[in-house]
Amino acid sequence: MPSRQETQQLAAGVTRLRNSNGREFIEVAHPRVSARIALEGGHLVSCLPAGQKPLLWLSPQEPEVPGKPLRGGVPLCWPWFGNERSGPAHGIARTGLWELESVVVTDEAVQINLELPQSEMAIHIPDEHWKLGVQFILASDLQVTLTSTNTGSKAQILGQALHAYLPVSDITQVEIKGLDQASYLDQLTGKEEVQLGPVRFSQEVDRIYHGAIGAVQLEDAGETITVAGSGSGSTVIWNPWVKKSRRLGHFPEDGYREMLCIETANAGHDRRVLDPGETHSLSTRISHHV
């Protein structure tokens, strides 16, 4: 990480800082958890509960410069997922400059709320009207909640994902449980398939699993990371493997070996239509168990 420059104390153990590249972060140093959030993108970069391993993966080649999406952590895909609509991949939220709304610190947790300002939306989606906020609850586990309200006068389509990058010891040795018998769209072939047994990795994987699946478990060398979603009827599993890793920015050629993504989403068939005044919350909870 680049050296820090400007700092501002927001609350006990919570600091706003600007790195030497000019990118702004909120840094949390609490007895229960350490974390960093980039204001550009509303992007949780890291989360380390006390006495545990990191819950999130960040590329060791990530320069953390302004104007570029970060490779790792929890990117916010909104109001579309992937290339479902014209415009930047995964929408506008992961590059917009978010505003800090509140910080609440207790003995058990730190809660941080951000909002995407209307000026950002007016630039990129001028025909749509939304109120968008994200809440981070940082403690012995991690919860991220993205809340969208249709503030316009007509129905609006919403696709989104909490694009969590998780660390693994060796991608060829891990498995994901909780998806057996679930149907999925293989985005590499365009075919609908059914999952049989755990998900294992020996090639590129890019899948949208359908249904309110609930908790998914990443099993890795006797340890488990659980990803539990709500407000979701789709779960995305992604690993770029060898060839795509070479094309990705800020990503080591062998980076695919040490990460995968389990994303709580409203993607594919699960895109939502929100009527005027309607609110929808998408949430993911990530926890580590030995």
Rank of each mutant, 00 (worst) to 15 (best):
H210L: 04
S119D: 09
I176D: 07
D141T: 11
S183A: 07
G229A: 05
G231I: 12
W130D: 00
V105W: 00
H289N: 09
L132R: 07
W241Y: 13
I123V: 15
S234G: 13
L76G: 08
P276T: 12
D270A: 15
H43S: 10
G214L: 08
D270E: 12
F251C: 13
P49I: 14
D275F: 06
C77G: 04
H280I: 14
V110L: 10
H124F: 05
Q156W: 01
D127H: 06
Y209V: 10
V205M: 11
T189R: 04
L76T: 03
I123H: 12
D220N: 08
R272A: 05
Q111R: 14
L39N: 03
V134N: 00
K243D: 08
M121H: 13
Q61T: 03
T145I: 04
E84M: 14
V74R: 06
G277T: 14
P240F: 05
S287H: 06
D170P: 02
F201H: 09
P126F: 11
L166H: 11
I262C: 00
W78G: 14
L114R: 00
H210M: 08
Q217M: 15
E99Y: 00
A38G: 06
V110E: 05
R71L: 01
S148N: 05
A122K: 08
R94V: 01
V74G: 09
P75F: 07
G13L: 10
V236G: 13
W98C: 06
G96N: 05
Q217V: 13
A11F: 01
